[in-house]
Design a protein around this nucleic acid. Structure first.
Lengths: 114, 114
DNA sequence: ACAATATGCAAGCATTTACTTGCATGTCAA
DNA sequence: TTGACATGCAAGTAAATGCTTGCATATTGT
């Protein structure tokens, strides 16, 4: 597949994107109000616009944020899917077996509902 | 509480610990076989012993690994609890609301069962 | 058309990170 | 008790990271 071209894994991009407090704060702000422009995200954030831009670039690379241009404005949208994948790979896998059955059941219910 | 003394948050230690492929590999190896010594963990890992030691120190700081001394050997054990907390704070929170009810139900069932 | 606005791009710098080498300490076993 | 083994500690280095400043580009509205 495409994996041959990648030098870093998805998990690497994902965890590195989440490893910074500023980037996590950006995710929280998008969670509170999705679709904000770069300028809006810069407000209340103690950093220059370029700093925020670079953080957002990493979040985009990790597929945690999707962008959409509207004229000269860049709108940012949260994508929760990679976080679900963290759950599958790094939380559910490490759970105690006793709890696993419940989670499996839950997952099946959700998949059916989707 | 103790939080006044901390310069970095739990989430910071946690995600930074998980942001390195070598450390994630260590977690996987402990998941496959818990309670390994440092020497055992060094095998099949393309790094010096000191490198592994430093990675394990970060995993300990993030409370993902607990250690127990047996004579001159240091045994390492996996602690899945912080990963559950990732789920609570960074996966469940960002889920679509429609799915949330199911998760809440599941959580209540688990809490009751614990 | 032109000024204001929204963002991109690139270079520079300070700090942190990942990793190594060398030596010290403590434990086991013959 | 002494040599082998398991690990700790500290300093040095190369690369990555976070952030800034300065300038370029594109869009909007008057």
């Amino acid at each position: 597949m495409l994996a041959y071209c990648l030098q870093v894994s998805d998990a690497d991009l994902l965890f590195k994107a989440l490893a910074d407090p500023g980037r996590r704060k950006l995710l929280d702000r998008l969670h509170a109000h999705d679709g904000q422009t770069l300028g809006e995200l810069c407000q209340h954030l103690d950093m220059t616009r370029q700093g925020v831009t670079q953080h957002l670039a990493l979040l985009e690379a990790a597929n945690l944020v999707a962008v959409q241009w509207r004229g000269r404005e860049k709108l940012h949208f949260l994508n929760p899917v990679p976080m679900q994948e963290i759950y599958e790979r790094w939380v559910r896998k490490f759970e105690k077996p006793r709890l696993k059955a419940l989670h499996d059941l839950k997952r099946r219910l959700e998949d059916g509902d989707d």
